[in-house]
Design a protein around this nucleic acid. Structure first.
Lengths: 340, 340
DNA sequence: ATAATTTCTGGGAACGCTCCCATGAAATGG
DNA sequence: CCATTTCATGGGAGCGTTCCCAGAAATTAT
């Protein structure tokens, strides 16, 4: 077959006009005679012409692509966020370049370089758990490439952020357990290095304080989100002289794992111990009993982040504002905390 | 800030050498003096130089990108496939451009144009349910861009395909129900337009035949995969004069929905009616009782497809072979079909 | 009719890189 | 000591666009 790609020059030659005119006709520039435009369009169509984004990108030195760096793909959370972002990006004619950092700092640095090399017009970032150094993100700033952080945000860098109201969500969840008559509410928290862990912990504590409940340190466990270990923590909690009668877990996978372990221990849920999670993952509705959880508008996180990013891309950098958008959560009550 | 991107010319000027030499030094060309290379590398590093893929792509007229067109993102299936593909692609230095067709033919056609415009080096495709016309795929063929179909494959086009053994999976699932002593096994099938639906139906029928069971037409329902309707079909089945004592559903979402509806009807699972799904979605292990299902090596589908595509990319098109890779399934037995 | 404006088109630089070809210097051989 | 080969480098075309700047042609104003 012919390997030659058809270009605007081919069209120009056949029509005996200049490539400039062809370019103008194709891009919809006003100053081109309607008949000329039509003949160009027709010929392009019949020649199977496809504009070469590679050339356009180079010429315009922008890629019409936004990059997304996420830590993982194993839970449904990030794919859904990406979906949301992709929707908005696609509407605006942008492609999406996705990189996973696999929760490791080194990969994240490499990913950042990939983004740079591909001249993305902006980046959406959710950091790894272990990222403590932000030089790889500062480069974006230096090069004038807008960033938006979401979910796992970076407070050391001035950039828009999109988060859900972790504090309020945790507060509502804990309050719900208090209202259900629970007295000893344990909290299986995430690592303190994660902002969301701290916020959820704070919401948990404040809810207890508001309702004049003691904050019992032995009922608060901070762990590294490695699900393997949940079993150990739950066993520890249940074996306490005064075991908890409720558990608020930092996220749904943790809560679901806890649910299973508790079931194995033969305790009645929610009577003997109620469980509440956070994020309303797919699966939380399926498990028996259904998991009470704090739903976050996952898809919206992606949509809002992408929109914020596009806004920055289309604005002079001197007008950029590091606003933080806090999305509301919703408490979804199921069988793990309330007999229906 | 300075908006100017650092280029090889900047480096060349500072070092008083030509851009050719800089280019060679940076790309690891052998014929460049070690000291020269080192000084180039050092300066590049200190100047925050990033190679411009846009220019490289144009110059080499290949994008080092593979495209993936998938119908949807709502189940975890495609994200996982994409993950697998991305892994392999990344290893080989390729980026991934993802498009969703939202199960609509028109969007799929647009997606194909996007791929073409972005000069992807190859495409991974899983078609929409409604794709009947394949002209948009033929273009890839004409342009010499390799394709690999996966999951929802296209038999009208000669290209490598990656599928799981739907027939065998369905066969094993049905046989398992027969071995469990079930006599009237219903099948909630997918639309006949989908190859996988037909294959699974075939496996189901052949298993019945092998074990000399009658194929009862009223127990076979083909539906459009719109979960809303599952309730109706289940009710129909349960209200039959001779209701089924087992159900083999075309996929897990269907089976899970069925499970819920059956539970509402107050029937005992698996004693009164056993349920088996297909695909081992996330969630199938969580639901109570656990769903017996045919697991497909989802991530491997992505990995194998991507590998096949890369093989084609690196091979002269005259050597391309339209091989079909059939990946094995595994029956996972849980509580929905067997008292454990 | 001539001047001033508007409309349309062509030419060519620029985007940043790769890669072929040429060239001069150093190294090798007879 | 000169011819030949090797090595390191420079020069420049090419990738396919866009977009600015000139002109030519057509239109309007004077």
């Amino acid at each position: 077959m012919k390997r030659h790609q058809v270009t605007i020059i081919d069209i120009a030659r056949k029509l005996n006009i200049s490539k400039s005119t062809v370019s103008r006709a194709l891009t919809g520039h006003p100053s081109v005679r309607p008949e000329t435009r039509q003949s160009v369009m027709d010929l392009a169509e019949s020649m199977d012409y496809q504009r070469n984004m590679l050339a356009i990108n180079l010429s315009s030195s922008q890629s019409k692509t936004i990059g997304i760096i996420v830590p993982e793909f194993v839970t449904s959370f990030f794919p859904i966020v990406i979906m949301g972002a992709q929707e908005i990006a696609a509407e605006a004619g942008y492609s999406v370049l996705i990189c996973q950092s696999n929760e490791t700092y080194e990969t994240e640095v490499v990913n950042a370089r990939v983004m740079l090399a591909n001249r993305v017009d902006g980046v959406l970032i959710s950091m790894t758990r272990e990222t403590k150094n932000f030089a790889h993100f500062e480069i974006f700033k230096r090069k004038g490439i807008p960033m938006v952080f979401f979910n796992r945000v970076c407070h050391e860098i001035e950039a828009p952020k999109v988060v859900v109201d972790d504090y309020e969500g945790a507060f509502k969840a804990t309050e719900h357990l208090i209202f259900s008559g629970k007295e000893r509410i344990a909290h299986l928290a995430g690592p303190p290095s994660l902002y969301i862990s701290r916020k959820r912990l704070e919401g948990y504590k404040d809810a207890l304080r508001k309702h004049k409940r003691p904050i019992i340190d032995e009922l608060i466990i901070s762990y590294d989100l490695n699900l393997e270990n949940v079993k150990i923590y739950i066993k520890y909690l249940l074996d306490l002289p005064q075991p908890p009668d409720a558990l608020f877990a930092v996220n749904d996978p943790t809560a679901i794992e806890a649910l299973k372990v508790i079931r194995e221990h033969g305790l009645k849920i929610p009577e003997q111990i109620a469980v509440v999670g956070f994020s309303n993952d797919y699966g939380s509705a399926l498990i028996e009993p259904g998991l009470t959880t704090v739903a976050q508008p996952t898809r919206d996180i992606g949509r809002v982040s992408a929109q914020l990013l596009l806004d920055q891309i289309n604005t002079d950098s001197s007008f950029w504002k590091p606003i933080t958008r806090v999305l509301k959560t919703e408490l979804i009550i199921r069988g793990s905390s309330q007999r229906g």
